[in-house]
Structure formats: structure tokens, C-alpha cells
Simulated assay, not measured.
Amino acid sequence: MKYQFWKYQGTGNDFIFFDGREDVSVIKDNKEVIARLCHRRYGIGADGLIILEKHETSDFRMVYYNSDGGESTMCGNGGRCSISFAHFMGLAGEKTNFQAIDGLHSGEIANEGWIKLGMNDVSDMKRLDERTYLLNTGSPHYVRLLDQGEDIDIVAFGREIRYSAPFAQEGINVNVVQEMDGKIKVKTYERGVEDETYSCGTGVTAAAIVYHRSMNNLPVGDIDVMTKGGALKVSFNAHKNRYTNIVLHGPVQMVFTGQIEI
């Protein structure tokens, strides 16, 4: 049977979308099918797959799967793309609220095609050493601050951390952060993709919070972030160890649409 799909990308983090108001039972929770659709040689190719469904109290529900086929925790760039797709499909207006695996999120289509995504508050941050932190921004993240000029192979480093004893079973996303020209540059190794992705929304959010925490005199406001896939911003309010009103800002693009036989 043929199924209509849409392909979106947010700063190079790409996703396959299906309209869950239709019968997509052959896809939902089917790890083999989802992994095949996300495969970049034998399928459409993507970092993840998202199904948008009706919801009783919100505009829609976002169901997110990693490219390995498993349902995963919150995806920031996937959330931003979901806002754009929901608006395109008539599920939501320019301002919306929707349900994800970690609860309720707000969103807005802003100027110049940028999408704003409200993230959950962050208060539980663990410092492993002066340059390394653990925190959860909807997904679990390991964040390492790099010195100026320091270079790390993110794939090799990410795999080493992700499969180390404390994290091997559940997995963890691994980020390295470097300040440059008044911005931060972030590289991310994502569990479930098991590779570097061009961008990671929850990772960028985690990196911006850790960077702010390490710079006690940094004023609260937008933090500009550069990723392999492009520019993002993270804004928040800081209250000692608690971060609230966190918003992830960035561009979104529909890449193409088509039909595929499943």
C-alpha cells in the first residue's frame, strides 16, 4: 500500500512525517519499517520519523522515533518541524500547543520562517568536573566544554561516552561546546542515530544552559549557537540552578513530499 509522507529539516536535522489522522498502523511502533524508511540507502533517509496525531486537549500529539526505529524522548528540532508541519496541514495556527513524550509544549511560527519551541524547565544539572555536565532537556545529555583551539572527534568521543558503563543501557546524547566569536559552536553525537547529526535541538539547549552556567556573569538573553547544519538561538530565564521559559529558535524547511510503498 502507498503512503503519503513529507520530509522536513531543521538546521540539517531531518525527519520523515506521516499524518496520524490516517491509518498508519503499519508504521507506528514498527521498528523494522521505521528503520528502513529512515535508511539513507534503502529508504527515504532521515535522522528520525514523526507521526502527528489528534489530541483531546492540545492541537496535536507528536510521536517521535529515532532512525533505529525505537520511540525516543523529546526531539527539539523535530518539535520545531512538527509545528511547521501541523500548520501546513491545518492542525494548528501560527501559535500552538502540543503534546510530546515529555509533556506539553508551546510553539510559534515567527519571522523569516523561524520556529519557536517552548522547552521544559531544567533544574537537575549534575557537574562531573569543571568542564563536564549531565542534564536533561527532554532528552538526556552529556555536555563537555572545550578549550579554545581544542579539537575532538565527536563520533569517536561520543561513542566512547554513550557506550560507557553508566550510560550503555539507556544511552545518552553527547555534546561538545566551544566558544567562538561571541557564539557557541556545538557538535552532537545522538543515541538512536549512533552518529553525529547536523544539529540536535535538545543538545543545543543543553549546551547553551551549560555555557551560561559556566559564565556566571553572562546576562540572560538569547545565546547564538552554530551547528554543522546552521544557526539556532536559545533563550531562557535563570534562577540560580533553575532555568525557566526556555525557548529554542531556528529555521525549518519542507524538503519534499511523495509516496512510498510499504
Rank of each mutant, 00 (worst) to 15 (best):
T137K: 11
L146A: 10
G149L: 09
D153Y: 00
W114Y: 01
Y133H: 09
V143T: 12
D129V: 04
S84H: 05
K116R: 10
S106D: 11
N136Y: 01
Q99H: 13
S106Y: 07
F167D: 05
R144F: 04
I83T: 01
C81S: 11
L146P: 13
R80Q: 10
D121H: 06
I101Q: 13
D147L: 08
M119A: 14
P166F: 02
G79K: 07
S164K: 08
W114S: 02
N77H: 13
I115F: 01
Y142F: 09
G171H: 05
G138A: 14
G107W: 00
K126N: 12
L145F: 09
Q148L: 06
Y133Q: 02
M125S: 05
G158T: 09
A110V: 03
G118A: 12
G118M: 09
L117Y: 05
Q148C: 04
L117M: 12
G113W: 05
D124P: 00
S164C: 03
S106C: 09
F167L: 04
I109V: 06
F98I: 14
G90N: 13
E130Y: 11
A168M: 09
E150K: 08
T132A: 07
P166W: 05
G149F: 05
F85M: 15
L117V: 12
D147H: 11
R80K: 08
E108T: 01
I115N: 00
N97K: 12
E108R: 13
F88S: 15
G171E: 06
I83H: 00
A86L: 06
G79M: 05
S106V: 03
G171S: 05
N77D: 13
S82A: 15
S164W: 04
K126G: 01
G149M: 06
R131P: 00
H141Y: 09
E130L: 10
D124W: 02
I115Y: 00
H87I: 10
Q148M: 08
R162L: 00
L104I: 15
G76K: 04
T132Y: 06
M74G: 01
E150D: 08
M125P: 00
R144H: 11
G107M: 02
R131Y: 07
E150P: 01
E108M: 08
G171W: 01
N97C: 11
T137W: 08
D147E: 13
D151V: 11
I115S: 01
N97F: 10
G90Q: 11
L128V: 14
A86D: 06
A168P: 05
F157Y: 15
E112L: 10
W114L: 07
D102G: 00
L104D: 08
I109D: 02
S84W: 04
T137Q: 08
R159F: 00
C75T: 09
R131S: 08
F85S: 04
L91V: 11
V155G: 01
G138W: 07
S164Y: 06
L91M: 15
A165K: 13
M89S: 11
F98D: 11
Y142E: 02
T96W: 09
Y133T: 01
G103R: 01
M125E: 03
L104E: 14
Q99S: 09
G113R: 06
R159W: 02
F85Y: 13
